[in-house]
Design a protein around this nucleic acid. Structure first.
Length: 873
RNA sequence: GCGGACGUGGUGGAACUGGUAGACACAGCGGACUUAAAAUCCGCCGGCUCCGGCCUUGCGGGUUCGAUCCCCGCCGUCCGCACCA
């Protein structure tokens, strides 16, 4: 009988409507079953979804559907990370309001996501630019402010003089603004900060407990937080200017104090400023340092430069005097902004000392080196060893010497304070969230001449963005709005001024996962509900968020705990970072990039060539790269879904490559997937014609073909379950292919037996149902359609995952490979529970073994039960 | 410079805890069906071979009855951080 081809376009639309009608994927907060929260990083509404989204959301949907079938109450929501600069850029370029642009994009992308057939609870959807959302965010900010988790202070920022805004470090490329191309200036601005550094230690130590996170991400966060233990050491200054009797440095190597040859100040150090006020040459040097730029390239090639201030400091132990320099490589915002230089054991200090002819005295002797001859050339010695040339430290190991110096300096007073203080330092900085931008969450404070900074009372929230703004000039439109910023002081009632800075959009994404648990509540969360759902059991997204978003969210969760909005520390129990979608690139003879849609690939004798589909003009096939607009090597998910179907797109995104690695999109692969899905459709159609009706139980105690089919089905069922659980989707799919191959050849070659043996036919029905159910997480539309063909009403999406019959997974007889001297030479088939002597006897009787032994007795026979036999001749 | 990951057929990859290397797929080749094409189905598909075998998981060693897996040393690719004292 001829089976109709599966019409993905028609069937997918029909099942999406049916799911929607029956509200299949809505989740209740009151469901008593165990919870499972699966979340994919929500998208920025840039315009259209891309294949990276398809991959990300396909993975999450497999997890969600699988867990639902396993009996969990699954929360699988979707929303929009909707504030940000692209909306304002669009406003400036195309004269469209950021709000209109954003919501239009959301509408488009929502339709695209819906066409993928994702099992999302759309009733919980929100965008971070919804007033309802950012109102709660303002409320959170006020709580953080009251709890002392927010500060306002001056800091150096990257200022783009053309766009007139602060730029994040990531937005400064080679010293220029990423959009304007203007040279970025360092400016001192008053900024709002969230005090993430208060949690530095906890954010660091808690990483150890995140055992379902990729090790790579944990290491990146660990390095980012950058904890180091050291000592602050205060030096007495000679001939010091008023107010600068001492200068303090931070060091992690107090053991090398006797190897000191200079002290260096940051150009931004207060003492530098004091000295520069009276020393025009120093002032010029400082100015020069500020113009050196912050780009990677500039730092890499930057020469060590210094300026001798003429001052001296006194060594705390032996009273020697050392010069004080201002040096370009000393950072003001790490440690104390000053260092002591020990050239023998620090490469930067060594470079500096060589340049300015300062002494180099080694004080740590590598093991086995001769103290009389050991010298340091162009490479500082930073390794371990024993102290020498170091007075009372001589002979000590490095750790002991560190301890001894700390101990002595702690109990020593200079100028009324201890000369040394142990200190733990972090690289992590407080999080500056002020942005001079319109399209963000307004910071809810008011500046009053009389009262200072006054928080907006919660009753007055929201501080809503005005709609009537102009984007005809760069800068922040909120600053130029005729009325918005004018407001009465909530405290004294006199005219005051609103804060016109908005929040960094990373704030918006730092708590959205908590908001999904009760998205319409009039408080940021309902604590009991948030606690019931959180943590997110499986979070899936790109590695590019390894630090910022994931660290901010970890901080935010702690801050929300401190302010009573939930009561846990870690938001994401399991984290998975998926690889990118990559594609071949194509270039025309004149060098312009050509999109895959315009290219036709031809293959002759294994050589692939490409031509323009229309003109036949030759096209060069280039390297495989991340899909990007600039290289035009993108494919549009909607085109793919229209030509192959959503199920095929989903399946292909999950097949072949392990999910953490990059996957290459190829048209041939997509076609192969579509062919496979047609094959499954035919198989189910042909199979159901032979199999007994729905409801027929699987045959118990089956044998022969029935048993073979049952074993194949239950083995696939077990393997698919295990591999999905481990997020090894590519392996899950391979197991399904294997299973389909078994079923396909049974239906094709064993038709007679299937028709004459009711047990085999019943086993076939069971197998087909299992096939449809294990495929349902990946290809839900096709699965629903097949489920109907198999004679069932209702949704396969609501079916529980079938139980594995463990008895069917074990073989009574097993075939063991037989090795002779580690090389496979034969097979032996024995009972599964045969003991070692029995197996050995069977092996030695084998003809191949006899031949290899040439009549001699084996030296040794190793029997690994149920695995392998190795005969050592 | 520091930190990390990876390296398996033409390609993507599989291989439980040290136990048959190459599952599964893509591409390719051969064949069947067809007036033809599409679709579908069947077969082959790491290398060498004196047809008994031999070699093969980047390279060189080591441990082991046995190594893609563990250890040491190289080579290569990719990613992250980067004057953090």
């Amino acid at each position: 009988m001829a089976t109709e081809r599966y019409n993905a376009r028609e069937a997918e639309a029909r099942w999406q409507a049916a799911w929607n009608q029956a509200d299949v994927y809505a989740t209740s907060n009151d469901d008593p079953r165990p919870k499972y929260y699966v979340l994919e990083m929500f998208p920025y509404p840039s315009g259209r979804i891309h294949m990276g989204h398809v991959r990300n959301y396909s993975m999450g949907d497999v997890v969600a559907r699988f867990r639902r079938a396993r009996g969990f109450n699954v929360l699988h929501p979707m929303g929009w990370d909707a504030f940000g600069m692209p909306a304002e850029n669009a406003a400036m370029q195309n004269k469209v309001h950021p709000k209109a642009w954003t919501y239009q994009n959301i509408a488009t992308m929502r339709d695209q996501l819906k066409s993928m057939g994702l099992s999302l609870d759309w009733s919980r959807e929100f965008a971070t630019c919804d007033v309802d959302y950012y109102t709660r965010q303002q409320s959170l900010f006020l709580d953080f402010l009251a709890a002392g988790l927010v500060t306002r202070r001056q800091s150096k920022v990257n200022w783009d003089p053309v766009d007139m805004t602060v730029l994040a470090n990531e937005q400064v490329i080679d010293g220029r603004g990423w959009r304007s191309g203007a040279l970025v200036e360092q400016r001192d601005l008053t900024q709002w900060f969230l005090r993430i550094t208060d949690f530095a230690e906890d954010l660091l130590t808690a990483l150890d407990g995140l055992d379902r996170w990729p090790e790579k991400v944990r290491i990146m966060q660990r390095n980012w937080i950058g904890r180091s233990e050291g000592l602050r050491v205060r030096f007495e200054l000679e001939d010091a200017p008023a107010g600068h009797a001492t200068v303090e440095v931070f060091t992690t190597r107090p053991d090398t104090l006797f190897g000191m040859s200079f002290l260096a100040l940051s150009p931004d150090h207060p003492l530098t400023a004091t000295l520069a006020a009276k020393d025009p040459q120093l002032a010029a040097f400082v100015e020069e340092c500020h113009h050196m730029g912050t780009s990677v390239a500039a730092l890499e090639t930057a020469e060590k430069k210094g300026y001798d201030t003429g001052l001296s400091v006194v060594h705390p132990f032996d009273g020697r005097r050392f010069p004080v320099h201002v040096a370009n490589f000393v950072l003001m915002d790490y440690g104390t902004g000053a260092i002591f230089g020990c050239p023998a054991h620090d490469q930067r200090d060594l470079d500096f000392a060589r340049k300015y002819g300062l002494t180099v005295v080694p004080v740590v002797l590598p093991e086995g080196a001769d103290p009389a001859t050991f010298t340091v050339g162009d490479e500082a010695y930073t390794g371990d060893g024993r102290l020498f040339n170091s007075d009372f430290l001589d002979g000590m190991a490095v750790p002991d010497a560190k301890e001894e110096v700390a101990r002595r300096l702690e109990s020593r007073e200079i100028d009324g304070a201890p000369a040394g203080r142990r200190q733990v330092n972090y690289r992590l900085r407080d999080w500056g969230i002020s942005r001079q931008r319109y399209w963000g969450c307004p910071i809810p404070v008011i500046h009053c001449e009389a009262c200072g900074v006054v928080p907006v009372p919660k009753a007055d929230l929201p501080v809503a963005l005005p709609d009537d703004v102009e984007f005809d000039r760069p800068g922040n439109p909120l600053d130029r709005h005729p009325t918005w910023r004018h407001v009465d002081c909530p405290s004294c009632g006199r005219p005051a001024r609103r804060e016109t800075d908005t929040m960094d959009t990373f704030v918006d994404s730092s708590w959205y996962f908590a908001r999904f648990t009760s998205p319409r509540a009039d408080t940021p969360t309902i604590p009991a509900v948030a606690d019931a759902w959180l943590p997110v059991d499986q979070y899936i997204g790109g590695i590019e968020h390894a630090i910022l978003h994931l660290l901010y969210s970890r901080f935010f969760t702690r801050a929300m705990k401190a302010t009573g909005h939930l009561s846990l520390d870690e938001p994401f129990r399991g984290l998975f970072t998926q690889g990118m979608v990559v594609h071949e690139t194509y270039r025309a003879a004149d060098g312009r990039w050509i999109s895959p849609a315009e290219v036709r690939i031809e293959e002759k004798d294994g050589v692939r060539t490409a031509v323009m589909a229309e003109s036949g003009e030759a096209v060069e096939i280039g390297s495989i790269e991340k899909m990007s607009k600039s290289k035009r090597n993108t494919v549009d998910p909607t085109d793919i879904i229209e030509s192959y179907g959503a199920d095929a797109a989903r399946w292909f995104m999950l097949s072949d490559s392990p999910p953490e690695r990059d996957v290459e999109w190829t048209d041939a692969g997509a076609q192969g997937t579509a062919r496979f899905l047609q094959r499954v459709w035919r198989l189910v159609g042909e199979g159901v014609a032979i199999a007994p009706p729905a409801g027929t139980p699987a045959p118990a105690g089956a044998s022969g073909l029935a048993l073979d089919l049952r074993k194949a089905a239950h083995r696939a069922l077990a393997a698919v379950g295990e591999t999905i659980e481990g997020l090894r989707f590519n392996v899950a799919l391979a197991k399904i292919y294997e299973f389909v191959n078994v079923l396909g050849s049974a239906v094709a070659n064993e038709r007679g037996r299937l028709e004459s043996d009711p047990a085999a036919a019943a086993a076939l029905r069971e197998a087909l149902e299992i096939l449809v159910q294990v495929m349902a997480p990946m290809t839900p539309h096709l699965a629903e359609e097949c489920w109907r063909v198999l004679g069932h009403d209702g949704f396969v999406s609501r079916q529980p995952w079938p139980e594995v019959d463990a008895a069917l997974l074990v073989e009574d007889e097993i075939t063991l490979p037989v090795q002779i001297n580690g090389k496979k030479r034969a097979d032996v088939t024995v009972a599964r529970d045969a003991d070692a002597p029995t197996v050995e006897a069977a092996v030695l009787a084998l003809e191949a073994v006899q031949r290899a032994l040439e009549g001699k007795a084996p030296r040794k026979v190793i029997v690994v039960p149920q695995r392998i036999v190795n005969v050592v001749a």
